[in-house]
């Protein structure tokens, strides 16, 4: 399923129009990737701030994040490198900052300004 299709499907699911028994897929099926539509970043109290200069791209934060909020991209050698943080979905749990190697400390938690 393409990303747009998933988003379209879930925008129906979570917004105004409720599906009828006829429209609803049978058997308690929910399409994959629905978390894309849930903007959980709004209730974050602390935000991780990534320092590109300090980062050694060990990817420990990426593998540790429970919400897949560490964004990665391939570099010129097609090796995955960190590209920032998805604040739409990051809930500010702080695991990335905690797991970042102590000698590097490339992620710092800062108070969210509301």
């Amino acid at each position: 399923m393409k990303k747009e299709e998933i988003e379209e499907c879930h925008s129906e699911h979570i917004h105004d129009k409720k599906l009828t028994a006829v429209e609803l897929p049978v058997g308690d099926i929910v399409e994959a990737g629905t978390a894309v539509s849930f903007h959980t970043g709004s209730w974050r109290s602390q935000r991780p701030v990534w320092n590109k200069e300090k980062c050694i791209n060990c990817l420990v934060c990426w593998i540790s994040c429970p919400d897949s909020c560490i964004k990665i991209i391939p570099d010129e050698k097609k090796v995955s490198v960190i590209d920032g943080i998805d604040y739409e979905h990051c809930k500010g749990c702080g695991i990335c900052a905690r797991e970042c190697p102590p000698k590097i400390k490339a992620i710092a938690m800062e108070q969210e300004k509301k």
Partner: peptide, 25 residues
């Protein structure tokens, strides 16, 4: 190739329709 979630929670807004589907089936 076609991943999906099976057996998710249904609250007041969807449980009824899913149960109706069984009755209709």
């Amino acid at each position: 190739k076609k991943p999906y979630t099976l057996g998710a929670i249904d609250l007041q807004d969807y449980y009824f329709e899913h149960r109706y589907q069984i009755a209709k089936a």
